[in-house]
Simulated assay, not measured.
Amino acid sequence: MESSDGTCSGWRPGVPVRLFASRVDREVAVANSRHCLRDLRASGVGASLTYLGDVDHMTSPRRSLPKVFDWFTSLRGAGR
Results as ranks from 00 to 15, higher is better:
Pro13Gln: 12
Leu37Glu: 03
Val24Tyr: 00
Arg26Cys: 07
Val55Ala: 02
Leu19Asn: 03
Asp25Cys: 08
Val17Tyr: 01
Arg23Ile: 08
Trp11Met: 12
Val30Gln: 08
Gly77Lys: 15
Tyr51Gln: 09
Arg62Lys: 12
Cys8Gly: 03
Val15Glu: 04
Leu52Gln: 08
Ser64Gln: 07
Leu37Gly: 04
Asp5Gly: 08
Asn32Gly: 03
Arg12Ala: 11
Ser60Pro: 01
His57Tyr: 05
Phe69Ala: 13
Ala31Asp: 13
Pro16Thr: 02
Arg41Gly: 03
Tyr51Asn: 12
Asn32Cys: 02
Ser48Trp: 07
Val17His: 02
Gly6Phe: 10
Asp39Val: 11
Gly79Ala: 15
Ala78Ser: 15
Leu65Cys: 05
Met58Tyr: 13
Val55Trp: 00
Met1Trp: 13
Ser4Gln: 14
Gly79Asp: 15
Val28Met: 05
Asp5Met: 05
Val28Leu: 03
Glu2Asp: 15
Gly44Asn: 09
Ser9Phe: 06
Ser4Thr: 15
Thr59His: 05
Phe72Thr: 09
Asp70Tyr: 06
Ala21Gly: 04
Leu19Tyr: 07
Ala29Gln: 11
Met1Thr: 14
Val28Glu: 02
Cys36His: 03
Leu37Phe: 05
Ser22Glu: 01
Asp70Met: 10
Ala42Met: 02
Lys67Thr: 04
Val55Pro: 02
Thr7Gly: 12
Leu49His: 02
Asp54Ala: 15
Asp5Ile: 08
Leu75Asn: 01
Ser9Ile: 04
Leu19Phe: 05
Leu52Cys: 14
Arg26Val: 13
Gly53Gln: 09
Pro66Gln: 00
Tyr51Leu: 15
Gly53Trp: 03
Leu65Phe: 09
Ser33Ala: 14
Pro16Ala: 08
Thr73Cys: 04
Pro16Lys: 08
Trp71Val: 01
Val68Arg: 04
Pro13Lys: 09
Ala42Ile: 01
Pro61Arg: 02
Arg12Phe: 10
Ala29Tyr: 03
Cys8Ser: 07
Val17Thr: 05
Thr50Leu: 07
Asp25Asn: 12
Leu19Met: 09
Arg34Val: 06
Ser9Leu: 12
Ser48Glu: 14
Met58Gly: 12
Met1Tyr: 14
Ala78Pro: 03
Gly44Ser: 05
Ala47Asn: 02
Gly44Leu: 05
Thr73Trp: 04
Glu27Ser: 13
Arg76Ile: 14
Ala21His: 05
Arg34Gln: 14
Val30Thr: 10
Asp54Arg: 12
Ser22Leu: 00
Val68Ile: 13
Val17Phe: 00
Ser74His: 06
Gly10Asp: 05
Asp70Phe: 04
Arg12Gln: 15
Gly46Leu: 12
Ala42Asp: 11
Ser4Val: 04
Gly10Glu: 05
Arg26His: 13
Asp39Tyr: 01
Gly46Pro: 11
His57Cys: 06
